[in-house]
Design a protein around this nucleic acid. Structure first.
Lengths: 254, 254
DNA sequence: CGAGTGCTTGATGGCAATCAAACACCGTGG
DNA sequence: CCACGGTGTTTGATTGCCATCAAGCACTCG
Protein backbone atom coordinates (compact mmCIF):
# COMPACT_ATOMS: atom_id res chain seq x y z
CA UNK A 1 0.00 0.00 0.00
CA UNK A 2 1.28 3.40 -0.95
CA UNK A 3 0.87 6.97 0.02
CA UNK A 4 -2.43 8.37 -1.24
CA UNK A 5 -4.71 6.63 1.22
CA UNK A 6 -2.87 8.07 4.15
CA UNK A 7 -3.65 11.72 4.04
CA UNK A 8 -7.28 10.79 4.37
CA UNK A 9 -6.65 9.37 7.80
CA UNK A 10 -4.25 12.14 8.59
CA UNK A 11 -6.66 14.85 7.63
CA UNK A 12 -8.33 15.46 10.96
CA UNK A 13 -6.06 13.76 13.46
CA UNK A 14 -2.29 13.84 13.06
CA UNK A 15 -1.23 10.22 13.25
CA UNK A 16 2.05 8.84 14.43
CA UNK A 17 4.15 6.64 12.19
CA UNK A 18 3.21 3.72 14.42
CA UNK A 19 -0.41 4.35 13.77
CA UNK A 20 0.16 4.73 10.07
CA UNK A 21 1.92 1.39 10.04
CA UNK A 22 -0.91 -0.32 11.78
CA UNK A 23 -3.26 1.00 9.12
CA UNK A 24 -0.99 -0.21 6.38
CA UNK A 25 -0.87 -3.63 7.95
CA UNK A 26 -4.64 -3.94 7.63
CA UNK A 27 -4.51 -4.95 4.01
CA UNK A 28 -4.66 -8.68 3.40
CA UNK A 29 -4.31 -8.50 -0.37
CA UNK A 30 -4.10 -6.26 -3.39
CA UNK A 31 -6.70 -6.33 -6.13
CA UNK A 32 -6.03 -5.21 -9.69
CA UNK A 33 -9.11 -4.25 -11.65
CA UNK A 34 -9.92 -3.41 -15.21
CA UNK A 35 -12.65 -1.11 -16.41
CA UNK A 36 -16.11 -2.44 -15.60
CA UNK A 37 -14.84 -4.99 -13.09
CA UNK A 38 -17.03 -5.06 -10.00
CA UNK A 39 -15.20 -5.09 -6.67
CA UNK A 40 -18.42 -6.18 -5.08
CA UNK A 41 -22.07 -5.94 -5.97
CA UNK A 42 -25.15 -4.71 -4.25
CA UNK A 43 -26.54 -7.55 -2.17
CA UNK A 44 -23.20 -9.31 -1.64
CA UNK A 45 -22.13 -10.32 1.83
CA UNK A 46 -20.10 -7.57 3.46
CA UNK A 47 -16.77 -8.98 4.52
CA UNK A 48 -14.29 -6.33 3.50
CA UNK A 49 -13.77 -2.66 2.92
CA UNK A 50 -11.26 -1.31 0.43
CA UNK A 51 -8.59 1.30 0.06
CA UNK A 52 -8.29 2.73 -3.40
CA UNK A 53 -4.63 3.30 -4.20
CA UNK A 54 -4.97 3.91 -7.92
CA UNK A 55 -7.70 4.49 -10.49
CA UNK A 56 -11.34 5.50 -10.34
CA UNK A 57 -14.15 3.50 -8.79
CA UNK A 58 -17.87 4.25 -8.89
CA UNK A 59 -20.18 3.63 -5.98
CA UNK A 60 -23.56 2.77 -7.49
CA UNK A 61 -27.02 2.00 -6.25
CA UNK A 62 -29.33 0.22 -8.63
CA UNK A 63 -32.96 1.18 -8.97
CA UNK A 64 -35.74 -0.66 -10.81
CA UNK A 65 -34.58 -2.10 -14.14
CA UNK A 66 -31.89 -0.19 -15.94
CA UNK A 67 -31.85 2.94 -13.87
CA UNK A 68 -29.10 3.45 -11.38
CA UNK A 69 -27.54 6.25 -9.37
CA UNK A 70 -23.83 6.68 -8.91
CA UNK A 71 -23.63 7.95 -5.36
CA UNK A 72 -19.94 8.78 -5.48
CA UNK A 73 -16.99 8.69 -7.80
CA UNK A 74 -14.03 7.47 -5.78
CA UNK A 75 -10.52 8.71 -6.48
CA UNK A 76 -7.14 7.46 -5.23
CA UNK A 77 -6.93 7.65 -1.46
CA UNK A 78 -10.59 7.03 -0.87
CA UNK A 79 -11.96 4.31 1.31
CA UNK A 80 -14.60 2.24 -0.41
CA UNK A 81 -17.57 0.37 0.93
CA UNK A 82 -17.48 1.62 4.51
CA UNK A 83 -21.16 2.61 4.71
CA UNK A 84 -22.18 -1.02 4.26
CA UNK A 85 -20.15 -2.10 7.29
CA UNK A 86 -23.33 -1.93 9.35
CA UNK A 87 -25.24 -4.07 6.88
CA UNK A 88 -25.44 -7.79 6.27
CA UNK A 89 -25.64 -7.29 2.52
CA UNK A 90 -23.96 -4.46 0.66
CA UNK A 91 -26.05 -1.43 -0.30
CA UNK A 92 -23.74 -0.35 -3.10
CA UNK A 93 -22.05 -1.84 -6.11
CA UNK A 94 -18.40 -0.84 -6.41
CA UNK A 95 -17.30 -0.85 -10.01
CA UNK A 96 -14.00 0.16 -11.57
CA UNK A 97 -14.43 3.11 -13.93
CA UNK A 98 -10.99 2.47 -15.35
CA UNK A 99 -7.97 0.33 -14.48
CA UNK A 100 -7.69 0.50 -10.70
CA UNK A 101 -5.94 -0.96 -7.69
CA UNK A 102 -7.42 -1.54 -4.27
CA UNK A 103 -6.22 -2.94 -0.97
CA UNK A 104 -8.61 -5.33 0.72
CA UNK A 105 -9.27 -4.83 4.44
CA UNK A 106 -11.47 -7.32 6.32
CA UNK A 107 -14.07 -5.64 8.45
CA UNK A 108 -13.06 -7.62 11.53
CA UNK A 109 -9.44 -6.47 11.26
CA UNK A 110 -10.76 -3.04 10.93
CA UNK A 111 -12.91 -3.11 14.03
CA UNK A 112 -10.07 -4.51 16.08
CA UNK A 113 -7.82 -1.61 15.16
CA UNK A 114 -10.68 0.72 15.73
CA UNK A 115 -11.05 -0.25 19.34
CA UNK A 116 -7.36 -0.53 20.13
CA UNK A 117 -6.49 2.85 18.68
CA UNK A 118 -8.88 5.64 19.65
CA UNK A 119 -7.03 8.23 17.63
CA UNK A 120 -7.45 6.26 14.44
CA UNK A 121 -11.07 5.77 15.41
CA UNK A 122 -11.45 9.52 15.72
CA UNK A 123 -9.83 10.01 12.36
CA UNK A 124 -12.19 7.59 10.69
CA UNK A 125 -15.20 9.01 12.42
CA UNK A 126 -14.41 12.54 11.32
CA UNK A 127 -13.71 11.30 7.83
CA UNK A 128 -17.13 9.73 7.82
CA UNK A 129 -18.68 13.01 8.88
CA UNK A 130 -17.01 14.69 5.95
CA UNK A 131 -18.60 12.17 3.64
CA UNK A 132 -21.95 12.99 5.15
CA UNK A 133 -21.47 16.66 4.38
CA UNK A 134 -20.58 15.68 0.84
CA UNK A 135 -23.72 13.59 0.50
CA UNK A 136 -25.84 16.37 1.94
CA UNK A 137 -24.40 18.79 -0.60
CA UNK A 138 -25.01 16.30 -3.39
CA UNK A 139 -28.57 15.79 -2.27
CA UNK A 140 -29.39 19.48 -2.43
CA UNK A 141 -27.50 19.75 -5.70
CA UNK A 142 -29.60 17.03 -7.31
CA UNK A 143 -32.84 18.23 -5.75
CA UNK A 144 -32.45 21.91 -6.45
CA UNK A 145 -30.21 22.63 -9.41
CA UNK A 146 -30.36 22.06 -13.16
CA UNK A 147 -28.46 19.44 -15.11
CA UNK A 148 -25.82 21.87 -16.35
CA UNK A 149 -25.20 23.10 -12.82
CA UNK A 150 -24.76 19.58 -11.54
CA UNK A 151 -22.40 18.74 -14.36
CA UNK A 152 -20.37 21.82 -13.62
CA UNK A 153 -20.31 21.06 -9.90
CA UNK A 154 -19.21 17.50 -10.58
CA UNK A 155 -16.31 18.53 -12.79
CA UNK A 156 -15.08 21.08 -10.27
CA UNK A 157 -15.36 18.56 -7.47
CA UNK A 158 -13.34 15.94 -9.31
CA UNK A 159 -10.79 18.53 -10.33
CA UNK A 160 -10.29 19.78 -6.78
CA UNK A 161 -9.99 16.29 -5.37
CA UNK A 162 -7.44 15.33 -8.01
CA UNK A 163 -5.45 18.42 -7.11
CA UNK A 164 -5.06 16.99 -3.61
CA UNK A 165 -3.35 13.92 -5.03
CA UNK A 166 -1.04 15.79 -7.35
CA UNK A 167 -2.92 17.17 -10.34
CA UNK A 168 -1.23 20.34 -11.49
CA UNK A 169 -3.07 21.78 -14.45
CA UNK A 170 -6.75 22.53 -14.94
CA UNK A 171 -7.31 19.51 -17.12
CA UNK A 172 -8.00 15.86 -16.56
CA UNK A 173 -8.79 12.59 -18.29
CA UNK A 174 -12.37 11.71 -17.56
CA UNK A 175 -12.76 7.93 -17.85
CA UNK A 176 -16.56 8.09 -17.61
CA UNK A 177 -18.80 7.45 -20.55
CA UNK A 178 -21.68 9.83 -21.02
CA UNK A 179 -23.98 7.17 -19.67
CA UNK A 180 -21.93 6.91 -16.51
CA UNK A 181 -21.80 10.66 -16.23
CA UNK A 182 -25.58 10.65 -16.41
CA UNK A 183 -25.66 8.12 -13.59
CA UNK A 184 -23.59 10.47 -11.47
CA UNK A 185 -25.55 13.67 -11.92
CA UNK A 186 -28.93 12.01 -11.98
CA UNK A 187 -30.11 12.40 -15.58
CA UNK A 188 -30.35 10.14 -18.63
CA UNK A 189 -27.54 9.37 -21.04
CA UNK A 190 -29.23 11.22 -23.87
CA UNK A 191 -29.67 14.31 -21.81
CA UNK A 192 -26.12 14.06 -20.51
CA UNK A 193 -24.98 14.41 -24.08
CA UNK A 194 -27.05 17.53 -24.67
CA UNK A 195 -26.05 19.03 -21.33
CA UNK A 196 -22.44 18.40 -22.17
CA UNK A 197 -22.80 20.23 -25.43
CA UNK A 198 -24.55 23.03 -23.64
CA UNK A 199 -21.69 23.41 -21.17
CA UNK A 200 -19.14 23.37 -23.96
CA UNK A 201 -21.22 26.08 -25.59
CA UNK A 202 -20.60 28.37 -22.64
CA UNK A 203 -16.87 28.19 -23.30
CA UNK A 204 -16.10 27.18 -19.73
CA UNK A 205 -14.80 23.77 -20.74
CA UNK A 206 -13.25 22.17 -23.78
CA UNK A 207 -12.95 18.52 -24.67
CA UNK A 208 -10.50 16.56 -26.78
CA UNK A 209 -11.45 12.91 -26.63
CA UNK A 210 -11.41 11.92 -23.00
CA UNK A 211 -9.37 14.94 -22.02
CA UNK A 212 -11.26 17.77 -20.36
CA UNK A 213 -9.94 21.32 -20.04
CA UNK A 214 -11.46 23.52 -17.36
CA UNK A 215 -11.06 26.91 -18.99
CA UNK A 216 -12.56 28.94 -16.16
CA UNK A 217 -12.65 27.13 -12.86
CA UNK A 218 -14.11 30.05 -10.94
CA UNK A 219 -16.98 30.46 -13.35
CA UNK A 220 -17.63 26.73 -13.25
CA UNK A 221 -17.69 26.88 -9.48
CA UNK A 222 -20.25 29.64 -9.33
CA UNK A 223 -22.32 27.96 -12.01
CA UNK A 224 -22.32 24.74 -10.01
CA UNK A 225 -23.37 26.64 -6.88
CA UNK A 226 -21.81 24.14 -4.52
CA UNK A 227 -20.90 25.73 -1.19
CA UNK A 228 -17.21 25.94 -0.39
CA UNK A 229 -16.61 23.79 2.67
CA UNK A 230 -13.77 24.59 5.01
CA UNK A 231 -12.93 21.43 6.86
CA UNK A 232 -10.77 21.84 9.93
CA UNK A 233 -8.47 19.86 12.08
CA UNK A 234 -9.87 20.88 15.42
CA UNK A 235 -7.67 21.04 18.48
CA UNK A 236 -10.06 18.85 20.49
CA UNK A 237 -9.19 15.86 18.41
CA UNK A 238 -5.49 16.36 18.75
CA UNK A 239 -5.13 14.09 21.74
CA UNK A 240 -1.71 13.02 22.88
CA UNK A 241 -0.62 9.90 21.00
CA UNK A 242 0.05 6.75 23.03
CA UNK A 243 3.84 6.26 23.02
CA UNK A 244 6.31 7.46 20.39
CA UNK A 245 6.31 11.10 19.31
CA UNK A 246 4.27 12.18 16.32
CA UNK A 247 6.42 12.23 13.21
CA UNK A 248 3.64 13.15 10.85
CA UNK A 249 3.73 16.70 9.61
CA UNK A 250 0.78 18.93 10.18
CA UNK A 251 -0.31 19.23 6.60
CA UNK A 252 -3.28 18.69 4.44
CA UNK A 253 -6.56 20.16 5.43
CA UNK A 254 -8.82 20.27 2.38
CA UNK B 1 -31.90 13.49 29.48
CA UNK B 2 -34.30 10.63 29.01
CA UNK B 3 -34.48 7.36 27.24
CA UNK B 4 -34.96 7.84 23.50
CA UNK B 5 -31.46 8.99 22.64
CA UNK B 6 -29.93 5.92 24.14
CA UNK B 7 -30.98 3.16 21.84
CA UNK B 8 -29.25 5.03 19.07
CA UNK B 9 -25.92 4.52 20.79
CA UNK B 10 -26.90 1.07 21.85
CA UNK B 11 -27.89 -0.01 18.38
CA UNK B 12 -24.59 -1.38 17.16
CA UNK B 13 -22.53 -1.78 20.31
CA UNK B 14 -24.13 -2.93 23.56
CA UNK B 15 -23.10 -0.31 26.08
CA UNK B 16 -22.65 -0.75 29.81
CA UNK B 17 -24.59 1.37 32.26
CA UNK B 18 -21.33 3.16 33.07
CA UNK B 19 -20.95 4.09 29.44
CA UNK B 20 -24.55 5.21 29.21
CA UNK B 21 -24.03 7.44 32.20
CA UNK B 22 -21.00 9.06 30.71
CA UNK B 23 -23.04 9.87 27.63
CA UNK B 24 -25.80 11.32 29.74
CA UNK B 25 -23.31 13.48 31.57
CA UNK B 26 -22.27 15.12 28.31
CA UNK B 27 -25.22 17.48 28.26
CA UNK B 28 -24.48 20.92 29.68
CA UNK B 29 -28.00 22.28 29.31
CA UNK B 30 -31.48 21.64 28.06
CA UNK B 31 -33.09 23.74 25.36
CA UNK B 32 -36.83 24.08 24.90
CA UNK B 33 -37.90 25.15 21.45
CA UNK B 34 -41.08 26.22 19.79
CA UNK B 35 -42.04 25.73 16.19
CA UNK B 36 -39.78 27.66 13.83
CA UNK B 37 -37.12 28.31 16.44
CA UNK B 38 -33.66 27.76 15.02
CA UNK B 39 -31.27 25.77 17.18
CA UNK B 40 -28.48 27.06 15.04
CA UNK B 41 -28.18 28.46 11.55
CA UNK B 42 -26.10 27.68 8.53
CA UNK B 43 -22.86 29.63 8.85
CA UNK B 44 -22.86 29.79 12.66
CA UNK B 45 -19.79 28.78 14.59
CA UNK B 46 -19.88 25.09 15.46
CA UNK B 47 -19.53 24.72 19.21
CA UNK B 48 -22.10 22.10 20.10
CA UNK B 49 -24.00 19.11 18.89
CA UNK B 50 -27.46 18.23 20.15
CA UNK B 51 -29.48 15.30 21.33
CA UNK B 52 -33.13 15.50 20.45
CA UNK B 53 -35.19 14.14 23.34
CA UNK B 54 -38.59 15.33 22.19
CA UNK B 55 -40.20 16.84 19.11
CA UNK B 56 -39.25 17.15 15.47
CA UNK B 57 -36.32 19.11 14.07
CA UNK B 58 -35.49 19.76 10.43
CA UNK B 59 -31.94 19.79 9.08
CA UNK B 60 -31.95 22.30 6.23
CA UNK B 61 -29.50 23.55 3.67
CA UNK B 62 -30.31 26.84 2.02
CA UNK B 63 -29.78 27.39 -1.68
CA UNK B 64 -29.96 30.67 -3.60
CA UNK B 65 -32.81 32.92 -2.41
CA UNK B 66 -35.91 31.15 -1.18
CA UNK B 67 -35.07 27.63 -2.21
CA UNK B 68 -33.89 25.22 0.41
CA UNK B 69 -33.52 21.51 0.90
CA UNK B 70 -34.42 19.71 4.08
CA UNK B 71 -31.75 17.06 4.26
CA UNK B 72 -33.29 15.18 7.16
CA UNK B 73 -36.25 15.26 9.47
CA UNK B 74 -34.99 14.42 12.93
CA UNK B 75 -37.13 12.53 15.40
CA UNK B 76 -36.69 11.91 19.14
CA UNK B 77 -33.48 10.05 19.84
CA UNK B 78 -31.58 11.55 16.94
CA UNK B 79 -28.30 13.34 17.25
CA UNK B 80 -28.31 16.71 15.52
CA UNK B 81 -25.56 18.69 13.91
CA UNK B 82 -22.83 16.07 13.99
CA UNK B 83 -21.80 16.37 10.33
CA UNK B 84 -20.68 19.95 10.93
CA UNK B 85 -18.28 18.89 13.67
CA UNK B 86 -15.49 18.91 11.09
CA UNK B 87 -16.38 22.40 9.93
CA UNK B 88 -15.61 25.84 11.26
CA UNK B 89 -19.06 27.11 10.28
CA UNK B 90 -22.19 24.99 10.26
CA UNK B 91 -23.38 23.54 6.95
CA UNK B 92 -26.96 23.08 8.10
CA UNK B 93 -29.68 25.06 9.78
CA UNK B 94 -31.42 23.14 12.54
CA UNK B 95 -34.98 24.33 12.95
CA UNK B 96 -37.75 23.05 15.20
CA UNK B 97 -40.67 21.74 13.18
CA UNK B 98 -42.80 21.74 16.30
CA UNK B 99 -42.30 22.14 20.05
CA UNK B 100 -39.08 20.30 20.80
CA UNK B 101 -36.48 19.65 23.47
CA UNK B 102 -32.76 19.16 22.93
CA UNK B 103 -29.75 18.51 25.10
CA UNK B 104 -26.70 20.57 24.29
CA UNK B 105 -23.35 18.80 24.07
CA UNK B 106 -20.15 20.79 23.48
CA UNK B 107 -17.99 19.30 20.78
CA UNK B 108 -14.93 19.30 23.01
CA UNK B 109 -16.70 17.24 25.68
CA UNK B 110 -17.71 14.94 22.97
CA UNK B 111 -14.25 14.39 21.60
CA UNK B 112 -12.88 13.72 25.05
CA UNK B 113 -15.36 10.96 25.65
CA UNK B 114 -14.70 9.69 22.18
CA UNK B 115 -11.05 9.07 22.84
CA UNK B 116 -11.45 7.75 26.37
CA UNK B 117 -14.13 5.24 25.44
CA UNK B 118 -13.43 3.28 22.27
CA UNK B 119 -16.69 1.37 22.49
CA UNK B 120 -18.72 4.55 22.48
CA UNK B 121 -16.55 5.73 19.62
CA UNK B 122 -17.40 2.60 17.69
CA UNK B 123 -21.07 3.09 18.40
CA UNK B 124 -20.99 6.63 17.09
CA UNK B 125 -18.96 5.68 14.07
CA UNK B 126 -21.35 2.94 13.08
CA UNK B 127 -24.27 5.25 13.69
CA UNK B 128 -22.67 7.72 11.35
CA UNK B 129 -22.33 5.02 8.71
CA UNK B 130 -26.02 4.31 9.02
CA UNK B 131 -26.73 7.97 8.33
CA UNK B 132 -24.59 7.73 5.22
CA UNK B 133 -26.65 4.82 3.95
CA UNK B 134 -29.74 6.87 4.62
CA UNK B 135 -28.36 9.81 2.68
CA UNK B 136 -27.34 7.56 -0.20
CA UNK B 137 -30.85 6.15 -0.35
CA UNK B 138 -32.32 9.64 -0.25
CA UNK B 139 -30.01 10.77 -3.02
CA UNK B 140 -31.11 8.00 -5.35
CA UNK B 141 -34.71 8.57 -4.32
CA UNK B 142 -34.59 12.23 -5.25
CA UNK B 143 -32.57 11.62 -8.39
CA UNK B 144 -34.51 8.69 -9.76
CA UNK B 145 -38.09 8.62 -8.53
CA UNK B 146 -41.17 10.77 -9.03
CA UNK B 147 -42.67 13.17 -6.52
CA UNK B 148 -45.40 10.78 -5.41
CA UNK B 149 -42.86 8.04 -4.84
CA UNK B 150 -40.70 10.30 -2.73
CA UNK B 151 -43.68 11.43 -0.71
CA UNK B 152 -44.67 7.84 -0.12
CA UNK B 153 -41.13 6.87 0.85
CA UNK B 154 -40.92 9.79 3.25
CA UNK B 155 -44.14 8.91 5.04
CA UNK B 156 -43.13 5.29 5.42
CA UNK B 157 -39.72 6.29 6.70
CA UNK B 158 -41.14 8.61 9.34
CA UNK B 159 -43.69 6.03 10.32
CA UNK B 160 -41.12 3.29 10.79
CA UNK B 161 -38.82 5.52 12.78
CA UNK B 162 -41.65 6.61 15.05
CA UNK B 163 -42.50 2.96 15.63
CA UNK B 164 -39.05 2.53 17.14
CA UNK B 165 -39.84 5.14 19.76
CA UNK B 166 -43.24 3.81 20.64
CA UNK B 167 -45.77 4.55 17.92
CA UNK B 168 -48.38 1.80 17.86
CA UNK B 169 -50.89 2.47 15.13
CA UNK B 170 -50.40 3.28 11.47
CA UNK B 171 -51.18 6.93 11.95
CA UNK B 172 -49.26 10.00 12.99
CA UNK B 173 -49.46 13.75 13.42
CA UNK B 174 -47.39 15.37 10.74
CA UNK B 175 -46.29 18.81 11.97
CA UNK B 176 -44.91 19.83 8.58
CA UNK B 177 -46.63 22.39 6.39
CA UNK B 178 -46.92 21.51 2.73
CA UNK B 179 -44.11 23.93 2.04
CA UNK B 180 -41.85 22.13 4.47
CA UNK B 181 -42.89 18.81 3.02
CA UNK B 182 -41.86 20.14 -0.36
CA UNK B 183 -38.49 21.10 1.09
CA UNK B 184 -38.02 17.53 2.25
CA UNK B 185 -38.86 15.70 -0.92
CA UNK B 186 -37.29 18.23 -3.25
CA UNK B 187 -40.23 19.82 -5.05
CA UNK B 188 -42.14 23.10 -4.77
CA UNK B 189 -44.91 23.86 -2.31
CA UNK B 190 -47.50 24.06 -5.06
CA UNK B 191 -46.54 20.72 -6.44
CA UNK B 192 -46.44 19.22 -2.96
CA UNK B 193 -50.10 20.08 -2.68
CA UNK B 194 -50.98 18.38 -5.95
CA UNK B 195 -48.83 15.37 -5.18
CA UNK B 196 -50.51 15.05 -1.82
CA UNK B 197 -53.92 15.03 -3.46
CA UNK B 198 -52.66 12.49 -5.93
CA UNK B 199 -51.49 10.17 -3.16
CA UNK B 200 -54.78 10.56 -1.32
CA UNK B 201 -56.48 9.65 -4.58
CA UNK B 202 -54.79 6.27 -4.57
CA UNK B 203 -56.50 5.47 -1.27
CA UNK B 204 -53.21 4.54 0.40
CA UNK B 205 -53.41 7.40 2.87
CA UNK B 206 -56.09 9.52 4.46
CA UNK B 207 -55.78 12.85 6.17
CA UNK B 208 -57.78 14.60 8.86
CA UNK B 209 -56.17 17.91 9.63
CA UNK B 210 -52.59 17.17 10.66
CA UNK B 211 -53.37 13.55 11.33
CA UNK B 212 -52.24 11.09 8.67
CA UNK B 213 -53.51 7.55 8.36
CA UNK B 214 -51.38 5.06 6.48
CA UNK B 215 -54.06 2.77 5.12
CA UNK B 216 -51.76 0.35 3.34
CA UNK B 217 -48.19 0.50 4.56
CA UNK B 218 -46.96 -2.30 2.31
CA UNK B 219 -48.35 -0.66 -0.80
CA UNK B 220 -46.82 2.66 0.25
CA UNK B 221 -43.50 0.92 0.71
CA UNK B 222 -43.48 -0.61 -2.71
CA UNK B 223 -44.65 2.64 -4.26
CA UNK B 224 -41.81 4.50 -2.53
CA UNK B 225 -39.33 1.93 -3.82
CA UNK B 226 -36.91 2.48 -0.96
CA UNK B 227 -34.77 -0.60 -0.33
CA UNK B 228 -35.30 -2.33 2.98
CA UNK B 229 -32.06 -2.04 4.92
CA UNK B 230 -31.17 -4.63 7.50
CA UNK B 231 -28.71 -3.07 9.88
CA UNK B 232 -26.84 -5.44 12.11
CA UNK B 233 -25.00 -5.50 15.34
CA UNK B 234 -21.93 -7.34 14.17
CA UNK B 235 -19.96 -9.53 16.52
CA UNK B 236 -16.69 -7.75 15.66
CA UNK B 237 -17.83 -4.64 17.41
CA UNK B 238 -18.90 -6.43 20.52
CA UNK B 239 -15.61 -5.96 22.31
CA UNK B 240 -15.38 -6.74 25.98
CA UNK B 241 -16.35 -3.68 28.02
CA UNK B 242 -13.72 -2.17 30.30
CA UNK B 243 -14.84 -3.01 33.85
CA UNK B 244 -18.35 -3.74 35.08
CA UNK B 245 -20.53 -6.29 33.28
CA UNK B 246 -22.88 -5.15 30.56
CA UNK B 247 -26.32 -4.53 31.96
CA UNK B 248 -27.83 -3.34 28.74
CA UNK B 249 -30.21 -5.76 27.13
CA UNK B 250 -29.51 -6.95 23.62
CA UNK B 251 -32.45 -5.25 21.96
CA UNK B 252 -33.20 -2.91 19.19
CA UNK B 253 -31.67 -3.45 15.81
CA UNK B 254 -33.69 -1.52 13.23
C1' DC C 1 -60.03 43.71 11.35
C1' DG C 2 -55.98 43.76 8.66
C1' DA C 3 -51.77 41.17 7.98
C1' DG C 4 -49.56 37.02 7.64
C1' DT C 5 -49.30 32.23 6.74
C1' DG C 6 -50.83 28.17 4.74
C1' DC C 7 -53.88 25.73 1.42
C1' DT C 8 -55.87 25.23 -3.08
C1' DT C 9 -56.62 25.58 -7.99
C1' DG C 10 -55.91 27.22 -12.85
C1' DA C 11 -52.94 28.40 -16.76
C1' DT C 12 -48.63 28.31 -18.94
C1' DG C 13 -43.95 27.06 -19.94
C1' DG C 14 -39.52 24.63 -19.66
C1' DC C 15 -36.39 21.10 -18.52
C1' DA C 16 -35.57 16.61 -18.96
C1' DA C 17 -37.46 11.75 -20.12
C1' DT C 18 -38.63 8.87 -23.67
C1' DC C 19 -38.71 6.95 -28.26
C1' DA C 20 -36.25 6.45 -32.39
C1' DA C 21 -32.55 6.23 -35.55
C1' DA C 22 -28.05 6.99 -37.50
C1' DC C 23 -23.17 6.89 -36.98
C1' DA C 24 -18.41 6.05 -35.13
C1' DC C 25 -15.41 2.99 -33.00
C1' DC C 26 -13.48 -1.40 -31.49
C1' DG C 27 -12.31 -6.12 -30.86
C1' DT C 28 -13.73 -10.66 -32.45
C1' DG C 29 -14.27 -14.19 -35.56
C1' DG C 30 -15.32 -15.98 -40.09
C1' DC D 1 -9.77 -8.85 -45.23
C1' DC D 2 -14.41 -7.78 -44.13
C1' DA D 3 -18.60 -8.89 -41.58
C1' DC D 4 -20.45 -8.50 -37.23
C1' DG D 5 -22.22 -7.29 -32.74
C1' DG D 6 -21.53 -4.35 -28.93
C1' DT D 7 -20.79 -0.07 -26.86
C1' DG D 8 -20.83 4.74 -26.95
C1' DT D 9 -22.08 9.20 -29.19
C1' DT D 10 -25.13 12.23 -31.46
C1' DT D 11 -29.36 14.27 -33.14
C1' DG D 12 -34.48 14.76 -33.96
C1' DA D 13 -39.32 14.44 -32.41
C1' DT D 14 -42.54 13.99 -28.90
C1' DT D 15 -44.24 13.63 -24.26
C1' DG D 16 -44.79 14.64 -19.47
C1' DC D 17 -43.50 15.99 -14.94
C1' DC D 18 -42.84 19.67 -12.38
C1' DA D 19 -41.77 24.88 -11.92
C1' DT D 20 -43.57 29.19 -12.26
C1' DC D 21 -46.97 32.78 -12.16
C1' DA D 22 -51.29 34.15 -10.49
C1' DA D 23 -55.25 34.48 -7.72
C1' DG D 24 -58.71 33.21 -4.36
C1' DC D 25 -59.80 31.27 0.07
C1' DA D 26 -59.39 29.76 5.01
C1' DC D 27 -57.45 30.41 9.34
C1' DT D 28 -54.86 32.55 13.09
C1' DC D 29 -53.13 36.25 15.65
C1' DG D 30 -51.98 40.74 17.37
Amino acid sequence: MRNPAMHRFNEFVPLTSNEIHSIERLSVRTLHLRRHDAIRSQGDQVRDVYLLTDGWVGCCMDVAEGRRQMVKVHLPGDMLGTPSMTLRTAAETLVALRRATVEVVPVCEFSRLFVSSPRIASAMFLSSLKERIFLMDRLTSVARTSAIQRLSAFLVNVYERLKLVGLEEAQLDLPLSQGELADVIGITAVHANRTWGQLEGTGLIRREGRRIFLLDVEALKSLGAMPQRRFERLPHWNIAPPAEPSLSSGTMVA
